[in-house]
Design a protein around this nucleic acid. Structure first.
Lengths: 125, 125
DNA sequence: AGTTTTCGCTTACATGTGTAATCGGAAGCT
DNA sequence: AGCTTCCGATTACACATGTAAGCGAAAACT
């Protein structure tokens, strides 16, 4: 089974769980207060769907459950970003950076960090 | 009205139209032959949905239509990539590149190009 | 002119998604 | 023991999406 498909709404819940887990439904509802204007019931639905997809786990803790991610952030991120890379930039990173550069999305700090990154590369493998 | 929402399947059709336009339905069906295993009817549905969303335009040419993108590739790409950048990397490019570097997605060629890109940057704004 | 082909438009239908309300049983309170 | 509360599970429902078949008018062919 490959990476489960996570919808946008579901990914908001995943984001919380990646930050802090295990967490109860209440924790998550609390964390989303103000952030997302969702009813509790909505969040519970999302938790259930994520459970069914196997993206999260629920461990019984007394009468409630503690939720935790099964799908790891890195794994999902890798899939997301690679899909974008492939679709738009032929799978190559340089054109992607060029794109952001054209969009003026590169801060001074980015440039400095990129420079350092690239210099420190060459060597290790 | 902000950028229309394009589904995955629809974006395949957009990709063709961005490459080559205007194009007839037949052109598009031809271009997708082998690529995607879709019936003609499916592609026509997608064209219609894109029309309704205002993402493409259809200009009558005799008895058929010539389709052309209204939504520009750059516009859509910018939205897609920025959304990923914001969601996962705090809107900053360097961490994104670091991510790909960790995933060993950087080819020799990428590194060379990035180097050049960054050097040529600094100066012009 | 009648028949066949073409092509866009309409309709179909199962599954996914956003967004909830409701139900049923366990826990807690009186 | 009965009533109330809490919480996960079940059900709901409209709209989006993937994937197409069917229809009707226009064009092309015979």
């Amino acid at each position: 089974m490959s990476t489960p498909l996570i919808s946008d709404a579901e990914s908001v819940v995943m984001a919380i769980l990646w930050q802090r887990h295990p967490a109860t439904a209440e924790d998550i509802i609390g964390a989303l207060e103000g952030e997302q204007d969702w009813q509790d019931a909505t969040i519970k639905t999302l938790l259930n769907r994520l459970l069914n997809k196997g993206a999260i786990r629920a461990d019984k803790d007394g009468r409630r459950y503690l939720y935790a991610p099964v799908l790891q952030r890195e794994e999902w991120l890798a899939q997301q970003s690679e899909s974008l890379l492939d679709r738009w930039f032929g799978g190559r990173v340089a054109p992607l950076v060029a794109h952001f550069s054209k969009q003026r999305k590169l801060s001074e700090r980015d440039i400095a960090e990129l420079k350092a990154l690239i210099e420190g590369m060459r060597d290790d493998q």
